[in-house]
């Protein structure tokens, strides 16, 4: 977890390139962890290197696309929106979990080969694609929906802006799994609920409209729940949405302790 995010961006003011803030085009090498049980390598993992021409504003995803579209069509990864909203393309880039579409090549030291691996802790299906089912299963377990009792109001529920702000940070989650798959506790046996599930529980536990906090705290008061968090802050560092993940987990712990005593 000690990847260097070197910023090699040149001063934007001296650029001659057309795109604003761009650096001239450069060559970049990607070292990609490949796994394809159907290929000649069978169950073996191999590392492939590809070199592509990139531009100043290109992201790691652009480089992966270039490889897939121009060199090796069998390179497999997930992607959709390409600007950090859909959460498809979380991967380990230079040893750190990031979204490929939000990581500019020039920010990850393109002078050396950039390593790209699937996120850790989830079964790899093919190349950079992992099985997301365990991840979503944990998410579903914490009852990620508003729980209320009584009659529905005829208009909206009233909530002050301050109450709304209380859980704002955790509403930003896009379920990309960058946090959960950066957590060393999750890597061990994948039984830990993981940061993302706790973040989404937090989003409802601290929503003033919600009445299911007790049930969610009960669920997370598990051997595999919040108490497995070791506050290594990997999750906070990995979150592409800038959510204070570790803080959210601590807040859930605190809520449990105040409940118990």
């Amino acid at each position: 977890m000690t990847a260097v995010a070197e910023n090699t961006r040149a001063d934007a003011g001296t650029q001659t390139d057309d795109a604003p803030g761009a650096v001239a085009s450069f060559e970049v090498t990607l070292k990609i962890r490949r796994y394809n049980p159907e290929s000649e390598h069978g169950e073996n993992v191999i590392w492939d290197e590809f070199t592509v021409q990139a531009h100043g504003t290109d992201r790691v995803l652009d480089a992966l696309h270039k490889i897939k579209w121009e060199q090796d069509g069998s390179l497999t990864f997930r992607r959709s929106c390409a600007h950090g909203i859909c959460g498809s393309d979380a991967m380990r880039i230079n040893g750190r979990n990031r979204l490929a579409c939000k990581t500019l090549l020039k920010d990850v030291n393109p002078d050396k080969p950039i390593t790209v691996e699937p996120i850790k802790g989830l079964p790899v299906v093919k190349d950079l694609v992992v099985d997301m089912e365990p991840f979503f299963a944990s998410y579903r377990e914490i009852m990620p929906f508003l729980i209320t009792s009584g009659n529905e109001p005829s208009r909206e529920r009233i909530q002050s802006q301050a109450d709304r702000d209380r859980f704002d940070d955790t509403t930003k989650c896009i379920l990309c799994a960058a946090c959960t798959s950066s957590c060393p506790v999750f890597w061990t046996d994948g039984q830990y609920f993981g940061p993302a599930a706790i973040v989404n529980a937090h989003r409802f536990i601290f929503d003033s409209r919600d009445e299911g906090a007790q049930q969610r705290l009960e669920i997370l008061n598990d051997k595999e729940g919040v108490w497995r968090c070791r506050t290594t802050f990997n999750c906070t560092e990995a979150c592409p949405r800038g959510i204070q993940v570790t803080k959210a987990i601590q807040e859930v712990k605190r809520a449990m302790i105040t409940r118990a005593f």
Binding site: F145, L146, E152, P153, E156, R157, Q159, S160, Q161, R164, F167, D168, T171, F204, D207, R209, D210
Partner: peptide
Amino acid sequence: ERMGLPFNR
């Protein structure tokens, strides 16, 4: 809103 969407207030 009733489904839980956190609108600004």
